[in-house]
Design a protein around this nucleic acid. Sequence first.
DNA 1: AACGCTGGGACCCTTTGGTAG
DNA 2: GCTACCAAAGGGTCCCAGCGT
Lengths: 339, 339
Amino acid sequence: MAMTMMKLAENLGLSVATVSRVLNGCDKKRVRPELAARIREEARKAGFQPDRAAGQLRRRRSNLIGILLPSLSIVNFYSELAGELHELILKRGYFPVFAFWIQMEEAVKAYRNIVSWRIDGLITVQPDIIEGKPEFPVVSYYNEDPRFDCLVTDSEQIFRELLEYLTSLGHRNIVWIGCNFDGRLPCLMRLCPEYSVKIKYMDCDNSIGLLSSSAGYCLTEKMLKEFSADLPTAIVASSDDIAFGAIRCLADHGYRCPEDFSVIGSDDVKQAELYIPALTTIKHSDKTSLAELLTDQIFKKIEKPDLPRDRVVIKRSLAVRDSCAPPRSHELTSIPRRQ
Amino acid sequence: MAMTMMKLAENLGLSVATVSRVLNGCDKKRVRPELAARIREEARKAGFQPDRAAGQLRRRRSNLIGILLPSLSIVNFYSELAGELHELILKRGYFPVFAFWIQMEEAVKAYRNIVSWRIDGLITVQPDIIEGKPEFPVVSYYNEDPRFDCLVTDSEQIFRELLEYLTSLGHRNIVWIGCNFDGRLPCLMRLCPEYSVKIKYMDCDNSIGLLSSSAGYCLTEKMLKEFSADLPTAIVASSDDIAFGAIRCLADHGYRCPEDFSVIGSDDVKQAELYIPALTTIKHSDKTSLAELLTDQIFKKIEKPDLPRDRVVIKRSLAVRDSCAPPRSHELTSIPRRQ
DNA sequence: AACGCTGGGACCCTTTGGTAG
DNA sequence: GCTACCAAAGGGTCCCAGCGT
């Protein structure tokens, strides 16, 4: 049986009210200091931990922040984000509650699950699964929703930067690989003609599976076959993991990166910088970390719930590293690693 | 105001007891089917979600499993594990509560935090931070603790396999890089003489920071400098991330893997197989996944708390891939990528 | 009378055994 | 015997009352 506040009070011959006051630090000018000390000492000795459920039930705040993200085990970017959010939320005296999903149907269940915690706020990348207008603030990243605060990316800005970079190297024929999260592919396709760049794309929907490195491998393989008549010279991947998978697939087919194919990732995962070649990729936010922006935003709304809806455009930037080079014709320059 | 069961009952002109029974599926033989249907329908329409805190307070089980792991944002292996545990625990009708830590002091706070949820079970890799004997079952991986069920690895078995493999390739001079989690370095050092293998090691303690790929980079750099007079031919890294960092560092110094250095990782992270070169690494468990073994064990103890303490030795195996090759002398075979 | 400190007890929402119709 | 309700319990929180000086 776990130690409860009531038992603790009984042991001390005091009322729960007094114990509660002391243990919550509301004892200033209310409880005699030496008594407070005795209570704290006894609580420590007994290894007392207040019951979260009971406290949460009584006061109307849970001090919980829900975090609803695609599965950790698939996309490295989300685990990095989850880890940072965890840390920042704890630092504010709140506690994070996670729910991850792989299939879209699971996402709705995950959301319901998280709501039953009576969370004080929610951070997600998938606001459309939220039904109605919840009574807690929500911050969404990527995908926009008129109901909630959103941190959105400016696809046009970053794709212009990307296209300028790629064309400056001499690329005129590129391919998009991966998923079409937040509808960025149409934006890229709209921009390409302006830069006289030909663009193709490989299998796009919104499933998270399409963000993993093995997906990157498969899509690249398919791409090489399907577009063999007119191979692109640069690959734009919708995540770093996809980019890694792509580079490996290229190697297995005897192509080298960046000599034969330039590859650009997205997210700037920790691994990107240390990959061989160091991966050129799109960074979220150029100064404050994304996790910080998200937590700042949610706590701003928790403190002042009446603030109007925010829509913050995050400035992304291209981390130029070693995975891009001027294009050259596609004769095999090395022996395929596998056939 | 969130919809509560009381309001729902009031709207229906029924008592909460009846509503509760229906919504918990205990309505067999207790509630008229058509009434049950009406209640369920109304609950759905109102978007009712039961308050977890209240339910948990009343029945004595929380249906929560605590997961206490080193920070996600640092070690890929832990995020994969966390993701899989999340999925498996949900599948059993329980809910995972996560706490991660970076510094050791944070670990104790994280543990206390998690305990205040009145969890029904705990999965961790760091049992020594648990004070006393908690009233919920605990399963520990890696690190052994006489108080709890443990899934332990057989260092000797896997290191023999590793040494046999390495010596069969011709290696006689190896180096250990990374942290000394679960005291496996001493085991390796004890075994080496048997195989006539010389072993050195680079900076080892238990801090998680030493599991990241940037740590792998730094340690390798230090190693190259410190042991330049007698460079080893193979590197055994204490995590795959370290191995990745090491390989990149080698490349930056003009060494290639596996031609100049063989590298072996540990954990068999998703990325390992798709890395270039595909990373030879130590897999946890050869058949059932580690996450499954852990959840099976914890639920076994939740269902039958009186079972004696278990100590399961997990059979690990070497996933032989492309990052190892016969050694050769250390003349530079390529141009350093950076100086 | 006023102030400083501690205790009493309603309340948060759900579960569940007992009971009434 | 079937169905639905009553009421207590579970652990804290917090307003208000009470007591002593």
